[in-house]
Design a protein around this nucleic acid. Structure first.
Length: 472
RNA sequence: GGUCCCAUCGUCUAGAGGCCUAGGACACCACCCUCUCAAGGUGGAGGCACGGGUUCGAAUCCCGUUGGGACUACCA
């Protein structure tokens, strides 16, 4: 039987990296087995779901390269792939569960339930649903209906111990009665997540459910519903949560944890995918920098760690720099354009392309291209504090001499420029550092820049001279 | 409160009873390289949460403690 995995996000605008890691593991498992990856959107909570939020999730997955074989905008044999459009399917399942006695109508009001929960707690008992409506007489039901009560539908958990063979956690057991009858249809008639997931996973022939371990206790309930519907439950793999530096589950208060945020900061999808794959998984050898193909080939759910992993931006950043360095110059330049434009810096594509060898090992994120190359594309190079200081401390007349020397430089390539600058420094009795920094400050407006001779080459003699003279 | 999950350097991890004097990576420190900043190279510091067992032998198996987390909803 071929492997079918799915990712079932709620449309949240942009996925946060914890969700993405679940998606990635699911995708890797499917691809590793040459199976199918299904995308299903859990938008039953229609009140808060916007089209924009839905688009955001699809955009994130596409950007990351987590392609789906069946799902929104692609279609497939189990359409539709948005839960909000599958209500008829749930309704049919609910009818069957009710008819076969796997579910029953519960007339307890929220107030009654709360009171009984409180009572149970006060007596030191477990507070879950007590099963009161499991067997109501027709008279009682008629009385409730006459009262105008609208029932919910509850699933009748089978008796006995519940056992789950989880691919990550191993065997997990719940004692009989531990998992109470749960609501599958609200009083307003809408199906609940616990029902929808089970129905969909069954209908879509999902063989492996890979998701966060916050859903571990949902698994025996998913399994029970699927069995009640006469189906074979999938295998489950509950991967641990991704936590923040404070060891709390990743959330908004950890700041920029959405895919969108990393994208805007100039992280590469290659880096994010590689990093996330390593968060809670390792190939078992010392490999860390792995291509998508290598990840697919090596991935194994049984090697997923069962303890929560803290997200470490520093390591992500290291990987990002590595992938930036490994990009070819055309590709890198193309990816940089967006950031320069966003920063309001005009771009000369030819110059940009030629500048790539100078900046690729200096960029930790694509966004850093702006500060590194602004001097090339903008003549507004007002010196920063450190550059101003360097210029102020330069020997009297040094920049005038520099202008003259550069003007007389026999050829405008890095080698000859370097020779010219060395001669200049030597005549002034300065070492390279002292001798070159004033030129850098004058030409780039900064104390930090790509290598100076190469930068001057790109800038061109005219513009370079203009700047050196202006500073002198 | 109850049930369940989890526990190796600051962080991610390797580790399936002797291969462990606990390996790798990020970060950190030092040095080398060097026109600034990076990148790169070399080296260093740094860890099995605690207590009991089991065993000739435990990071590894068992129990407990402590500490995190999830669930316990007409949330997902």
């Amino acid at each position: 039987m071929s492997v079918r995995c799915r990712f079932a996000p709620a449309p949240s605008g942009s996925l946060h990296v914890g969700n993405v890691r679940s998606a990635l593991f699911s995708w890797l498992w499917a691809r590793h087995h040459g199976g199918t990856f299904v995308l299903r959107v859990e938008d039953t909570d229609a009140s808060r779901v916007t089209e924009e939020a839905f688009r955001g999730v699809l955009d994130d997955l596409r950007w990351l390269g987590l392609d789906w074989d069946e799902g929104p905008e692609i279609g497939g044999p189990d359409e539709p792939y948005r839960q909000s459009q599958r209500m008829a399917i749930y309704a049919e399942a609910i009818e069957r569960l009710l008819a076969q006695g796997h579910a029953y109508r519960c007339y307890c009001t929220p107030e009654e339930l709360e009171a009984r929960r409180d009572g149970a707690k006060a007596r030191g008992e477990a507070p879950g649903y007590d099963g009161r409506c499991r067997s109501r007489t027709p008279e009682e039901i008629a009385a409730f209906d006459a009262e105008g009560r609208t029932p919910v539908v509850r699933f009748r958990m089978p008796d006995g111990e519940q056992v789950l063979m989880d691919l990550v956690k191993g065997e997990v057991r719940w004692a009989a009665g531990e998992i109470r009858d749960f609501v599958i249809v609200r009083a307003d008639g809408s199906p609940v997540f616990l029902l929808a997931v089970a129905v969909d996973d069954l209908a879509m022939g999902v063989t492996h459910v890979v998701r966060g371990d916050d859903l571990l206790t949902a698994a025996p309930r998913n399994v029970a519903v699927i069995r009640a519907l006469g189906g074979m439950p999938p295998a489950y793999a509950h991967v641990p949560q991704v936590v923040g530096p404070d060891r709390k589950p990743l959330s908004k208060r950890h700041g920029s944890t959405s895919v969108q945020a990393f994208r805007e900061q100039g992280y590469l999808p290659e880096a994010l995918v590689n990093y996330l794959a390593l968060l809670g998984w390792s190939p078992g050898d010392d490999r860390e920098r792995m291509s998508r193909e290598e990840l697919v080939a090596a991935f194994d759910l049984s090697r997923v760690s069962s303890n929560p992993a803290a997200f470490d931006t520093e390591k992500l950043t290291w990987l990002n720099n590595y992938y930036i360095q490994s990009l070819d110059d055309d590709d890198l330049a193309a990816r940089c354009v967006h950031f320069l434009v966003e920063a309001g810096v005009g771009v000369d594509p030819v110059l940009l392309r030629r500048a790539m060898p100078l900046v690729k090992e200096r960029m930790k994120t694509l966004a850093e291209v702006v500060d590194l190359l602004r001097f090339l594309f903008s003549d507004d190079i007002a010196p920063n504090a450190k550059a101003a200081d360097i210029l102020a401390k330069a020997p009297e007349g040094y920049l005038k001499e520099a202008a003259a020397a550069l003007d007389a430089c026999p050829g405008w390539d890095a080698e000859q420029i370097a020779r010219t600058l060395d001669g200049l420094a030597e005549r002034a009795g300065l070492n390279r550092t002292k001798g070159w920094q004033p030129i850098r400050a004058a030409v780039t407006g900064s104390n930090v820049s790509p290598p100076l001779p190469e930068s001057l080459t790109l800038l061109g003699r005219e513009r370079a001279l203009l700047r050196v003279r202006a500073a002198g």
